[in-house]
């Protein structure tokens, strides 16, 4: 387990189970957070890290149903996958880029404790997945990483 932020456990990479974990306390009920994840007009509002509304947000919300999120900045890099489990308002499981994403929503007195887990199949897959996610970001580390990936195919 490698916590990258020593002040909190909001983000951890578990290298043994190849799982990335996030946690966030939200000032809203689990029902509302679940809707924000599962209604296209809502998710389109917040998914893009740059803050722009998604260009395309399609969801076939049922087990086995596909989704496709396309940002304006990276129309060439859609976030696509398949829903595996839809259990409102507590649990949403999907497959994306070969990793399994699980959203867990627990009701708390102040709102919702949201946990997001991204489970990769291997350490190599974990490294690739992080690198892919990085492709949307900015900064020097990104440039270094992109250069590395280009150089190493």
């Amino acid at each position: 387990m490698l916590p990258t932020d020593t002040n909190s456990v909001a983000f951890t990479i578990d290298e043994v189970t190849h799982t990335i974990r996030f946690a966030r306390d939200l000032d809203a009920s689990p029902e509302r957070v679940f809707d924000a994840w599962t209604q296209p007009d809502q998710l389109a509002n917040w998914w893009d890290a740059m803050g722009d509304r998604l260009a395309i947000c399609e969801m076939d919300l049922r087990p086995g149903g596909a989704f496709r999120f396309v940002s304006r900045h990276h129309p060439d890099k859609p976030f696509t996958g398949t829903y595996l489990e839809i259990s409102p308002p507590a649990r949403l499981v999907f497959d994306a880029n070969g990793a399994t994403g699980t959203v867990l929503l627990d009701e708390e007195s102040a709102g919702t404790r949201m946990r997001v887990e991204i489970a990769c199949s291997s350490a190599d897959h974990l490294a690739q997945f992080v690198a892919m996610g990085v492709a949307d970001g900015t900064g020097k580390t990104l440039n270094n990483l992109e250069k590395y990936l280009e150089a190493n195919g």
Binding site: A10, R24, A28, N45, V116, V134
Partner: peptide, 22 residues
Amino acid sequence: ADWAEPFRILWERRFDNLERHL
């Protein structure tokens, strides 16, 4: 840690957006 940092930032931004949206 630094290597994973942009990935963390990406998702943290996404969750910041979610908070604003809510």
